[in-house]
């Protein structure tokens, strides 16, 4: 059974400059215990998608259906939704400013724990310390009484992970948790996320392909507010089908760091036809006219992509 099923999800932000179409008809399913990597450039709509699941977008128009364990999330009232946040579905944000600068880190974690019914302040604090130990923080007791500015970037991210796991949620949405970290610290954080989510469902939002590869069972690639390719991690890595995915691989340092030409289009003024065609290396005539559907590749079952070229050949 799937823990999360997203159907025809649209998210739009009305702004003075025009309607920002951040997520456009996204369908996505996440099985219980599955870890899915959501990959895309900045502005591809991947973060908006993640926040839409927990309904934490302000000023957005959200349409479609999001089902969590059979519950239609968009139909819940705010109080019911609040009960799911943190204890069922938790979010791990990218860290620098995600912790409150004027509260002790231990207290911020304990606050979450108290919400799930641990009314005793001392017990909650003790559990918070345990949660910090569980993410490999040495001297957790000492650090629980310190403030975020005393933490290094890597430690802040660990604290965020501890916070996300504190109430033992089923589904974790991690929003670019490795962004801005040094390479060796990033490696540690990736390893940590992999270890602590073995028995969880995870939506791992990132622009970092290698991090996603180490953690995730499946990978979805987002471009311009829609999913352009999704499949098993090995499958995507061995046989990327969409030109955008290929481009992402080519831009990796070990692959020669060739950036995709052009820049991401504005989400107000989305290109017609295939959204990627203005930047594509081998566009066909049809690409500019028609919008390709997301279809299963003939060669590999369960591997979906949105490109005319592969459809035909």
């Amino acid at each position: 059974m799937s823990i999360l099923a997203i159907n025809d999800l649209k998210v739009q932000f009305p702004t003075p400059e025009g309607l920002v179409k951040a997520v456009n008809s996204v369908d996505l399913e996440l099985e219980e215990g599955e870890r899915l990597g959501m990959i895309g450039e900045t502005g591809s709509g991947k973060t908006v998608l993640g926040l839409a699941v927990v309904r934490l977008l302000s000023g957005a128009e959200v349409e479609g259906n999001i089902e969590y364990r059979g519950k239609k999330l968009l139909l819940l009232d705010e109080a019911e939704m609040r009960k799911l946040r943190g204890r069922e579905i938790s979010v791990i944000f990218q860290s620098p400013n995600s912790l409150n600068p004027v509260l002790k880190v231990g207290d911020q974690i304990a606050e979450s724990i108290r919400l799930v019914g641990c009314s005793n302040r001392q017990d909650a604090k003790k559990k918070a310390v345990q949660a910090m130990e569980a993410v490999g923080m040495p001297d957790a007791e000492l650090w629980a009484d310190r403030y975020p500015h005393q933490f290094s970037g890597g430690m802040k991210e660990r604290a965020m992970i501890a916070l996300g796991l504190a109430c033992d949620p089923r589904l974790i949405i991690a929003d670019e948790p490795t962004k801005g970290l040094d390479a060796n610290i990033k490696a540690q954080v990736v390893e940590l996320i992999r270890d602590v989510t073995t028995d969880k469902s995870l939506l791992f939002i990132t622009h970092d392909l290698s991090a996603a590869a180490q953690i995730c069972d499946r990978i979805a690639v987002m471009y311009c507010g829609e999913i352009v390719e999704v499949g098993r991690t090995e499958e995507i890595f061995a046989n990327p089908l969409h030109p955008y995915t290929e481009g992402l691989f080519r831009s990796l340092p070990i692959m020669g760091m060739k950036a995709i030409r052009g820049a991401s289009p504005s989400l107000i003024d989305i290109p017609s036809g295939c959204r990627f065609h203005p930047r594509c290396d081998r566009p066909c005539e049809n690409c500019a006219k028609a919008h390709p559907p997301l279809v299963e590749a003939e060669s590999s079952p369960g591997h979906l992509m949105r490109c005319f070229q592969h459809d035909r050949g």
Partner: peptide, 19 residues
Amino acid sequence: EYVLTARSKGLREMEILRH
């Protein structure tokens, strides 16, 4: 961003304001 974090924990709006 810490306000967003607080919301994601499932705190009530007034609790977020106060704490």
